[in-house]
Nucleic acid binder design. Sequence first.
DNA 1: TTAATAGTGTCTATAAGACATTATATG
DNA 2: CATATAATGTCTTATAGACACTATTAA
Lengths: 241, 241
Amino acid sequence: MARSTRSPQEFPRPLTTVDVVIFTVIDDQLHVLLVKRPTGDAEPHPGMWALPGGYVDIERDKDLEACALHKLKEKTGVVSPYLEQLGSWGNASRDPRGWTATHVYFAMLPHEAVKLGQGKHATETGWFPIEGDGVGRKLAFDHGVILETAISRLRGKAEYTSLPAYLLPETFTLSELQHVFSVVLGRPVDKSGFRTRVLSSGLVEEADGMKTGPSRPAQLYRLKTPKNPTFFPRTFSPRKQ
Amino acid sequence: MARSTRSPQEFPRPLTTVDVVIFTVIDDQLHVLLVKRPTGDAEPHPGMWALPGGYVDIERDKDLEACALHKLKEKTGVVSPYLEQLGSWGNASRDPRGWTATHVYFAMLPHEAVKLGQGKHATETGWFPIEGDGVGRKLAFDHGVILETAISRLRGKAEYTSLPAYLLPETFTLSELQHVFSVVLGRPVDKSGFRTRVLSSGLVEEADGMKTGPSRPAQLYRLKTPKNPTFFPRTFSPRKQ
DNA sequence: TTAATAGTGTCTATAAGACATTATATG
DNA sequence: CATATAATGTCTTATAGACACTATTAA
């Protein structure tokens, strides 16, 4: 067995990176945050769009999640987002600089909370609308595949968990919640069924105040357990005929 | 941004490992495969039980999954198991030898397919019954937490996917399938409901032959799509009163 | 009073839970 | 025939889906 017969130092170490897939909803559409690759001579994929990320700094980052949070704050200014691990991708060919493994996180933010380009080394960043299973252009490295995985995870979990709720600010109306589910799922969601589903699951509790507008005011709610998504006992499943 | 302002070589690289949580069912109980840590002087946690795993060998392993499959074959002789990524754990303190990140996979095998200690460098290995959220003893490194996560993922997914089916050999009866679900879930599963759930989901198809025994023979089935688990539209959920 | 959206109610279809009953093999 | 387990049937209950209807605000 490797671990017992050779010392760690004998192994050439793969490069370790962390990347973050950051989702938000802008104008009734799901978007992902991308950054432009630098154009230096030694840089791989110069000028292409990529997921925000970079090398783990073992002096600065106490763990992988801290590293992801650091990168997220650097790009968006957001400190406490919803963040979960998406997976890791590691092989000899994904980066021309050698064998690399990246730990990928995915974050969901309300658009209002984001201020782009806060970091010292601000790079060109932008929100790209999700169309189908990507952003309609080739991304750097294997980030296209990673993004596809993230989209499919988000859509999948939207069928039976409260994940899309993290795309909203701290308080929101049930209509807004229903809307963000329909944006993520890409299809209309029935109001009545949605409301009973949400209210009976204990996902939300009433917040003080109402949202006013040009029509009937709506009750504001907040997540009861903001750290953990709620699981529903059934998936959304349109009636068969 | 780190990636653009410093070259990879300036970063001290974390150690990269892969570990595998291997589940099987023996005698109506879920078990996990553990290996004993070597007792050498420089070895961390000598003599403790740990998940099988080790360093990524960038000359041998073309990617992380290949590395996991290699370790799995080395310990069990099994070549094509059900294998999925569980997550990754990386920080400064989990291994006394320095900042490490491990990519963890989890595998499920029929017990009949396993032959322990096939590798050249055979280490002491053993099946440990799962009781509650672990094996009732402290494991090396942070493997206790990792195992907990794996158990909870398996039990969670057993509520709404066909995952436990991978604990059975290629053909099986519906009663055997029901039994393995009840072992994983730790509670009885109603036969009638289970059968309609499984048959209407398209999870299985009839195989040739029947399983005979001291009573009525049972139809054999096989997985219709052995690579991917099936999702059920509802969770198992005992009636409330 | 109208427009717009919030919120509720009704009916039905689906599938699970609980448990009883029938079917088919062996010894 | 007795026994064991496979396979099916019946009845109830929970909840989603479809969609109609009522409520409450601003302009």
